[in-house]
């Protein structure tokens, strides 16, 4: 008699991801799906896809999804949640979408304490458009629009979204996680699940920033990209919980 240790979640359909080989965005999809299933709310879920590599995520989830304009996913999610407070509404957004063009929308969704869950994929670059500099691109990191590498003098220092949002009262759950090794993935799953729990308990806005890889635009093998997350990203973007809803009293 065998027991299943791991199999694909029913929250994902059989459509194959368009993501490049080894891109950890796929892992994040799995964690969202597994969390929804384990919380028993897959049937209540309404996702909001953004623009960037996550734009096509509506193809993969076994739940209803609305595709939003660039950066506007938190506004679209607000519209959905205000109409259907009984549903579980989440956004999946990359760093170009959330930290750059959608900075206003994410700040104000947090500010209103909008009861939505945001999964923020930070891979420090614009993936879909081909490797341009993001607000989260590290100092010295090369991008197609920072060919000599990002400098503080020219572009400022990378934006720390989790820390920024944790200063906002309406953000009731804020955590930064990574998916660069199995232990990190397990922690990321716990955080994502808790971010949904925050919504289910009606506490307020919840966000999980997930450090992710972009092997293609970083110019690395997928395995080396995991190493770069650990050696370069985590020192600047420290992992951990910044706000938990039981503490926010």
């Amino acid at each position: 008699m065998s027991t299943i240790v791991y199999k694909k979640t029913k929250a994902l359909n059989d459509t194959q991801f368009h993501y490049c080989p080894g891109c950890t965005h796929g892992i994040i999809h799995k964690l969202i799906g597994e969390s929804l299933v384990e919380l028993g709310v897959l049937g209540e879920a309404i996702g909001v896809a953004s623009v960037g590599c996550s734009a096509l995520c509506y193809k993969y989830f076994n739940c209803d999804v609305q595709q939003a304009a660039h950066g506007r996913a938190p506004a679209v999610a607000t519209g959905i949640k205000r109409v259907r407070p009984e549903n579980v509404v989440f956004t999946l957004q990359g760093d170009g979408d959330l930290a750059s063009i959608g900075a206003a929308e994410i700040v104000h969704a947090a500010h209103r304490g909008e009861k939505i869950t945001t999964i923020f994929v930070n891979n420090a670059i614009y993936g879909m458009t081909g490797g341009q500099m993001a607000p989260t691109t590290l100092i010295g990191q090369k991008a197609t629009t920072a060919p000599e590498g990002r400098t503080e003098e020219h572009s400022g220092k990378p934006l720390k979204i989790a820390e920024m949002l944790a200063t906002i009262d309406g953000a009731k759950y804020v955590e930064r996680v990574s998916v660069h090794n199995p232990a990190a993935v397990r922690k990321a799953k716990k955080a994502i699940k808790r971010a949904f729990q925050c919504q289910l308990e009606g506490k307020g806005f919840a966000i999980v920033e997930v450090l992710s890889t972009c092997p293609t635009n970083w110019g690395m093998t997928p395995v080396n990209a995991l190493g770069w997350v650990e050696s370069d990203m985590i020192p600047y973007y420290p992992l951990g919980n910044l706000r938990d809803f039981e503490e926010a009293k």
Partner: peptide
Amino acid sequence: IACGNCAIMCPDSVITVEKL
């Protein structure tokens, strides 16, 4: 050893792991 690490890290849900 059925640790599941391979499946957890697989971005494309290629892998199923069973404990015998």
